[in-house]
Amino acid sequence: MTRDEVYDKVRNVLVDALSVDEDEVAPDARLTSDLGAESIDFLDIVFKLEQTFGFKIAQGELFPENVAQDPRYVKDGRVTSEGVAALKDRMPHADFSAWEKNPEITKVGEIFTVDAVVKFVERKLSATAAAH
């Protein structure tokens, strides 16, 4: 599957899950602040990606959980360097460069972009292909 094909399918998932227009789903659009995603929408997106691409997504694989509750990872409203490293490790599909300059926990949603979802799907598809 080409990147354009993956992108088209991811866009359809997001249009369906978030009731947004196709042209709003730009690669750098953030799921929460630009596309209005709320917490339950992330589960909806996971279910729809599984259905569309035929792979299984483990809990916390696409959108890591419980970072905000871990005292090692958050101090004074900011994600610690240990926390940033943990996020990067768990989300190799995301681009942290803009957010990590000022890693406030309330803005961690900024890293969940359309492009991050596309990259996640590409990695999953190539891992699935390699396994066969």
């Binding site: 589960l43 909806d44 279910f47 599984e50 259905q51």
Partner: peptide, 10 residues
């Protein structure tokens, strides 16, 4: 039931 998972269901 479409999907059932520890987090929720659709």
């Amino acid at each position: 039931m479409e999907r059932f998972d520890p987090m929720g269901a659709s």
